[in-house]
Design a protein around this nucleic acid. Structure first.
Lengths: 122, 122
DNA sequence: TTGATTGCAAACGGTTTGCATGGGA
DNA sequence: TCCCATGCAAACCGTTTGCAATCAA
């Protein structure tokens, strides 16, 4: 556990909005100017590989989600913000064998619309 | 409507499996060796912009979905194949205002599991 | 001491763009 | 004629990797 890694983990603990790797890099680099992009990217990949973090991809860029409990996502059409939606808010879907004979074992819902801030902005 | 564009559209009409831009490029280029990558990419972007095609992103690469009717997706954990799931197979979710005060107007479900081919392969 | 972690810069893969050429209406 | 589509290559952006130096244990 090096200072760089600690800074990354601390940033992620506070980050409630699915930061991109680049956002994490610039914040960590601001606090620890010696930290390189490679270290941040590698650490993030390592954490994700260890299931301590989830990767979500939107528009070609990976975002990191420190929320490990199962949940769905809401994506704001206007500002692109991604917010978590509690798992219990979406009725569970029937899994198992589908009509196409695929065997489904999990699912994920993404809701689209306007976030609160963008609603206020009109 | 040039031969290149025709070839792209024809390929997409037959493609039932969400080809990547690169797959489209190599197939079109095989039939029309003069076709450049730029033309294919630009045409795809143009078609997607005109809502004649949907872009779906998986693992850093854009895939194109010629199925314009609303539907959900199934992603095979083993081979990565993406298949369409009929809209009517998923019970409609309640939209409108969410507890977090976001205003949801649409949703999308992704199911994960094993496709038929991978099930057979054991 | 010794293996893991770091910084740098260069490589990478998918995608986009600038620019000059060429064909279609 | 005039514009749009094309081909090529270079640029681009986010990400990954090779490598030598450095640090933690």
């Amino acid at each position: 556990m090096t200072p760089q890694r600690r800074a990354i983990v601390e940033y992620l603990e506070k980050a409630r909005n699915h930061p991109t790797a680049e956002e994490i890099f610039s914040e960590v680099n601001r606090r620890f100017p010696m930290t390189s992009r490679a270290t941040v990217y590698n650490t993030l990949k390592l954490l994700a590989g260890a299931e301590l973090l989830h990767e979500i991809r939107k528009d070609d860029t990976v975002r990191y989600d420190p929320n490990l409990s199962p949940h769905h996502h809401f994506v704001c059409r206007r500002c692109g913000r991604i917010e978590d939606i509690g798992w219990e808010l979406i009725p569970p879907l029937a899994l198992g064998e589908l009509p196409g004979r695929q065997l489904a074992d999990s699912f994920e819902v993404t809701l689209f619309g306007l976030c609160l801030a963008c609603r206020k902005r009109g």
